[in-house]
């Protein structure tokens, strides 16, 4: 729920931070997905690399973004083990 509201409000900034592979919006997203600080760098690299999947089109809706993002976390062995999505 928290993630959803964050993505809905801050979607533009989040997309920008994910595309450039740095910034507080992407770190906040990692935090909301329950990823510990040690894996934030891996999280950031992973989402930047998968930008086109997490944001499949110019105006993606927050639900799609979250589903795609969490699929990608689940598919990444390190992140899947470390991040425990808080809802």
């Amino acid at each position: 729920m928290q993630q959803y509201r964050f993505v809905a409000v801050a979607q533009d900034n989040l997309a920008m931070d994910i595309a450039r592979g740095s910034g507080e919006y992407v770190t906040t997203m990692a935090y909301l997905e329950g990823c510990p600080t040690e894996v934030h760098d891996s999280f950031t690299k992973m989402v930047q690399h998968n930008f086109n999947i997490i944001f499949p089109q110019p105006e993606s809706d927050p639900e799609t973004i979250l589903i795609k993002l969490e699929e990608k976390i689940a598919a990444d062995p390190l992140l899947a083990a470390q991040c425990r999505g808080i809802s």
Binding site: R20, G21, G23, F51, F55, P58
Partner: peptide, 21 residues
């Protein structure tokens, strides 16, 4: 133009991550 923004973001995501903000 959201499309323009989107293609810029796509292009950006291919470039290295930055700390230069």
């Amino acid at each position: 133009d959201k499309k323009k923004m989107y293609s810029l973001l796509l292009q950006r995501s291919q470039l290295p991550g930055s700390k230069s903000q």
